[in-house]
Design a protein around this nucleic acid. Sequence first.
DNA 1: GCGACAG
DNA 2: ATCTTGTCGC
Length: 231
Amino acid sequence: MDVPDLPPWPATVREAEAVQDRLRSRIDLACPDPPSVRTVAGLDVAYAEDRLAAAIVVLDLDRLDVVEETVVLDRPSFPYVPGLFAFRELPALIEGLRRLSVTPDLLICDGHGLAHPKRFGLACHLGVLTGRPAIGVGKTRLVGAYDEPGADRGSWSSVTEDGEVVGRALRTQTGVRPVFVSVGHRVDLDTACAVTLRLTPRYRLPESTRRADRLSRRALASDRARPGGAP
DNA sequence: GCGACAG
DNA sequence: ATCTTGTCGC
């Protein structure tokens, strides 16, 4: 998949926030009329000491089987700061996308999109940098208020912040905590939730995210076991 | 001043 | 994210 070169990377909180302020206006909230999503890419990153492994797994949305996968070993590009999380792993994820021979119809991030203090979470950032549709599916809330959704799988409630809907708390399995779905770029919230439900026939988290999680951990472990290293 | 705070 | 044993439940 082709992705434009990355701009110079920020080194401070102040610079990173300036980047978010500048790129925020490039989010496209329109959604193609029949939203056709046949393939999705799950993106996740595992950490160990000063290393990280960014994994991407592309799935066929109908069959839920693997179309292609990539892993990139790297170092964090930024410290972890809530709200600036994207700066930490975006360079490795972008490199992983470049190594894909296919272009997935939708990128699914482990984190948030608009449900972010500046309405520019990882999913928005990744979407804007790639120009591709992206959503965020987070395990916990970052911003916003919501009512507990109904107990059944498929139940949901809006997550609102400053009077606007920034995402949804979506129950993907009966009797399990909801996940937090938000739009990143070029998709609508209904489509984002519909896709998330198709990816969760059995577990709380999307199959795409689960596969990427396993792959990233495996890659970190085998890299640690690798012979040789720095002299 | 005291919490909250994606991964 | 990661550090960690047993334990409750399907």
